[in-house]
């Protein structure tokens, strides 16, 4: 296994020195994110998030399967993420690293456990047929703040996704192709977004957001908040690290709420843009032309 790359002594001391002076290497403010780009693919349910040099891609797919026997009224919803050697040679396939475990757990807690997707709506025939929705998260390049960008990509992809429409008549289940009926969006309840705060300094009193890989290597602790725009916390995780003052954590929560609203607006705006782009030609125009005859 190749060694994980480590910053040199000069990089360490200089970066920390600069942070203690309130400066960052890319001239950002301490509480400023890198420019965030969100774009959708041609297919439904593909979201591509670029945050500086970090890039993640989420792809949603759905198929009809048999529900779990202990949950006959629920559909299946899972999020899979893999950090492979494409990100960095130190990540091996099938041997999850700490980063990967924590990322998977965080997405699970933020999106799945908080009930962002109504899994009951995925049930078609109780105990027999249900939709299985699966999000595949691909990390294409990692330069810090994987958590925030991954969460945004997964939420955006799920909200962008359309599954084929279905109907039940008696015992027969019909699944319509996109040409027969317009695909329908998932039953989405709320959109949680993660914001990670990284602590620096002797007592962890300096707070940074959206750290790059180098800054992430040097932090003394971090806390991730997941909130939706209604101000509901879905998850908080400060997993060890240097102890920080409780008041600072409360301040971070308020900042996370503001950030979450910003993310919500961004995703809403991009989704509206994308819907507009699709509306022009496409299926609806085709169908309406037929109706005119």
């Amino acid at each position: 296994m190749p060694r994980e790359a480590e910053p040199s002594l000069s990089e360490r001391t200089f970066t920390l020195q600069a942070i203690s002076e309130g400066l960052r290497l890319d001239s950002r403010k301490l509480d400023q994110f890198r420019p965030l780009e969100l774009s959708f693919g041609d297919e439904y349910g593909v979201a591509d998030v670029k945050l500086g040099k970090t890039r993640v891609l989420a792809k949603v797919s759905a198929e009809v399967t048999v529900p779990f026997s202990d949950r006959p009224f629920d559909g299946i919803f899972q999020i899979t993420s893999e950090l492979g050697p494409m990100v960095a040679p130190s990540f091996e396939v099938n041997r999850p690293t700490e980063t990967e475990i924590l990322l998977a757990r965080l997405l699970e807690k933020t999106i799945r456990r908080s009930g962002a997707l109504d899994t009951e709506s995925l049930c078609l025939i109780a105990g027999q047929k249900c939709w299985s929705v699966r999000v595949d998260l691909h990390i294409l390049s990692a330069d810090g703040n994987l958590i925030d960008s991954s969460c945004l990509a997964v939420v955006a992809a799920l909200r962008h996704f359309r599954r084929p429409d279905t109907s039940i008549e008696g015992e027969t289940l019909t699944i319509y192709t996109a040409a027969e009926r317009e695909p329908v969006p998932l039953s989405w309840l709320h959109s949680p977004f993660c914001t990670t705060f990284d602590f620096f300094g002797e007592d962890g009193e300096i707070v940074l957001v959206d750290t790059t890989w180098l800054e992430e290597q040097l932090r003394v602790g971090s806390v991730t908040f997941s909130l939706n725009k209604h101000g509901e916390i879905c998850q908080i995780s400060k997993l060890g690290g240097k102890p920080v003052e409780a008041t600072l954590i409360i301040q971070c929560a308020q900042m996370a709420l503001a950030k979450s609203k910003e993310f919500t607006d961004l995703v809403d705006a991009r989704l509206a843009e994308d819907a507009k782009r699709r509306d022009k030609g496409g299926l609806m125009a085709e169908l309406s032309a037929e109706n005119e005859r």
């Binding site: 101000g231 509901e232 879905c234 998850q235 908080i236 995780s237 060890g240 920080v244 409360i250 929560a253």
Partner: peptide, 26 residues
């Protein structure tokens, strides 16, 4: 927390709760 201070070393929350209630719980 660490010792007798107000310094938080571990904070894990897995359930949905209003952000305004965080302070009281903490």
């Amino acid at each position: 927390t660490l010792g007798d201070s107000d310094k938080v070393a571990v904070l894990v929350c897995e359930s949905r709760v209003q952000v305004s209630r965080l302070e009281g719980m903490l």
